[in-house]
């Protein structure tokens, strides 16, 4: 036991006691062990024939067995004692949804920088040119950002952006309304009106597996309403979008997110980002951040 505990070097209790995605279940080989990393610690994962997934700190022979859950098609684990359950996504269980992991991509950046990029509207015209934005449609109209009463979640609503290709199912450009949710320091969700049915919402999740303080694996959850495109095409579109963000993320200095709001200049459109930084500090998140 003593030996396994020395494998944990992360000293941030908030980070240690959280749940994290460590793999898409269907991508784990059955009956074989696969190494993984979480918060600088080495893990071993194994998916059994019956469908259960096990996780150990260190090796399966000598390591400490870790708590393991399956949700949204992913295997989740924790190095500590999670105080809460994994958050819910009510839409996920609706009929006719196309639920899948779009990709699990290593990114050379801290988790909080990646979450902040996911919440950002103002980069669409410059990073996702002709897909999620285009000049001169660069103005970001005011939107609402609130922290839930108990402090568990951030919710950004009335976010609007003109998008040439909002989703693969979109036939033309239009102004899309987004809602963003941050239910976990390393996970964020977005809801956007479906191109073919504005009364329903596509859901995209960014679920991060922090490898080190400045390196993550980004697991991208899709829960879409689309009855024309193949799984490969839907995954491909998300992968294309993320491939445009990755070089930006990997060129941010410093890699960890500064929580002092005066360290980096902000504009009105950065309301989500500023709230997220404050919220991380309120929750004492130190892993992947620069405290004020």
């Amino acid at each position: 036991m003593q030996e396994q505990c020395s494998l944990i070097t992360c000293e941030d209790p908030t980070a240690l006691n959280a749940w994290y995605v460590v793999a898409a279940v269907c991508e784990l080989p059955i009956g074989l062990e696969r190494p993984a990393r979480l918060l600088d610690a080495p893990l071993t994962l194994r998916r059994e024939r019956g469908g259960t997934v096990q996780a150990w700190l260190g090796s399966s022979a000598e390591g400490l067995s870790l708590p393991c859950r399956q949700k949204f098609g992913y295997a989740w684990t924790s190095l500590g004692v999670p105080a809460q359950d994994i958050f819910d996504i009510p839409q996920y269980d609706e009929p006719h949804r196309r639920n899948m992991n779009a990709a699990s991509v290593g990114v050379n950046v801290s988790g909080p920088r990646a979450i902040e990029n996911f919440l950002d509207l103002a980069h669409f015209a410059f990073v996702h040119t002709n897909y999620l934005g285009v000049e001169p449609h660069t103005e970001i109209k005011p939107y609402q950002v609130n922290i839930s009463e108990g402090g568990e979640e951030i919710l950004a609503t009335q976010c609007r952006a003109y998008q040439p290709v909002a989703a693969l199912s979109a036939k033309q450009g239009y102004e899309v309304e987004y809602v963003y949710r941050v239910p976990h320091p390393y996970c964020a969700l977005l809801y956007k009106a479906v191109a073919t049915d504005p009364t329903r919402q596509d859901v995209i999740g960014l679920l991060l597996q922090p490898i080190t303080e400045d390196r993550v694996v980004a697991h991208m959850l899709l829960s879409l309403l689309d009855d024309t495109n193949s799984d490969a095409a839907l995954r491909g579109y998300q992968q294309l979008i993320f491939s445009q963000d990755k070089p930006i993320l990997e060129n941010q200095l410093p890699k960890r997110l500064p929580l002092n709001l005066r360290t980096e200049v902000s504009a009105r459109a950065d309301a989500s980002s500023s709230t997220y930084r404050r919220w991380l500090n309120d929750h004492r998140v130190r892993y992947g951040t620069i405290p004020p």
Partner: peptide
Amino acid sequence: NRCPHRGVRLSI
């Protein structure tokens, strides 16, 4: 080599 806004390298 750093944008004062979100720290991206100006050289890209």
